Simulated scan of single mutants.
Amino acid sequence: MKLNDIRDNDGARKVRVRKGRGIGSGKGKTAARGQKGQKSRSGVAIKGFEGGQMPLHMRLPKRGFNNPFGKDYAEVNIGMVQKFIDAKKIDGKKDITEETLRAAGLVRGGKDGVRLLGKGEIKAKAKFVVTGATKGAIAAVEKAGGSVEVTAPKKTDAKADA
């Protein structure tokens, strides 16, 4: 066995088919598009078209409402915050801010800020600085001896979103 004897296995490298390069190639003339018709022409995009029949995506009923002015909060439960404090990923002695929660990996997304929810139980005396909080979450944190400071949501330009 020499270096010049080494070759790929048969079929390991497949040569791509070049369409429309003469009738001798086997894929010439119509370039495997068949004869005539819309699909044989260039620049055709008939993704949802059903030959004049009402397309399926238009036949199905539309449901719900998408509020263009709705806020997008990243939601975090106090029980999860307690888990992260127990695991020493968050320092319970310092203020727990949005940046702290993002750095710990507890919060992702939520372009309008972080909202604290009351699911779970918190034992640490923590001070939260968040964009929003439920009544239950505030009550649970205050019961544990902590406090919740609710800041104003971030101003987003309505024209930039549209």
Rank of each mutant, 00 (worst) to 15 (best):
T100W: 04
K71H: 10
R16A: 14
Q38N: 07
G11Q: 06
D8S: 10
A104Y: 06
A45M: 09
S40M: 11
F65S: 00
K135R: 08
Q82Y: 04
G136P: 05
P68Q: 11
V81M: 11
N67I: 02
P68R: 15
V150S: 11
R59N: 00
G64C: 04
L60P: 01
A158P: 02
K14G: 03
K62M: 08
A12V: 12
K127Y: 05
A74W: 08
I6A: 06
V15A: 05
G48F: 15
G113P: 00
K27W: 12
Q82F: 03
A45N: 03
K2E: 09
V129I: 15
K19D: 01
A126G: 00
T131M: 02
I46Q: 13
V114S: 06
I85Q: 04
A87F: 01
M1V: 10
Q53M: 15
G26Q: 00
R21K: 14
T100G: 01
A103H: 05
G120K: 14
D91P: 00
N9C: 04
R16N: 01
K94P: 00
R18P: 13
K71E: 12
S42R: 14
G110Q: 14
P61E: 06
K127I: 04
G145W: 11
V76L: 11
V130Q: 13
Y73A: 09
